[in-house]
Nucleic acid binder design. Sequence first.
DNA 1: ATGGTCGGGAACCGA
Length: 257
Amino acid sequence: MKIATFNVNGIGARLPRLLEWLGEAKPDVVGLQEIKTETGRFPLTEIEAAGYHALVHGQKGFNGVAILTREPAEEIDRTLAGDPEDAQSRWIEARVGDVHFVCLYLPNGNPAPGPKFDYKLGWMDRMAARAAELLASETPVVLAGDWNVCPTDRDLARPDMMEGDALTRPESRSRFRSLTACGWTDAIRARQPGAECYSYWDYQAGAWAKNWGLRIDHLLLSPAAADRMQDAGIDRHVRGAERASDHVPVWVELQTA
DNA sequence: ATGGTCGGGAACCGA
């Protein structure tokens, strides 16, 4: 079962690129982030024509997540518990076969410090609570998405340019690290321990041309899922297309049970 | 010259 995450940065602008990539990569499950559209305006017809079912948690103009699956999936939840006031569309969970799949769009958190950074850290604490519940289930779980956390200085080209940024701050990194310490496996790092493996290049400053990338899109696997990992990778070439997203797809292949 | 672009949706905000 091939499971992927892809921050499309606007499903309206990115639909042609997404359909291209679905056709070549043939994932079984994909978590999309930043669809930036209302649920009712999601291009369901085109996605279904490409052979996918869709669970959509949209939001007008900002955020928005979705799960695409080859086989029908059962939606489990579309809210991250712990803050009834939180109206941002950043979370959706589904059961796909015997895998519990979570698609998440973690808050960016800039500028830091400030209220947006506080929201990010609170969101990460809420996520840690949900992750602990899922870990206790001892089932195969995949936490996939745009984490807006660059785990270490090996995961970005220019640490000097990101000094003090919410993506690299110790408060963000320590919360990410506590998940891996609890038993979640960072799929890309597990498969490619020493490799340069970025998943995002800013539109600004010619970042793609200079390969000033960051690794911020992650798939975290519960032990039962990690036991089944056969491969993991990043579809870097997608960034080179015309009208590309600033993120590229990241994927993991799990052995079918 | 710190480097300066996208997407959404119609002026800026968010990243």
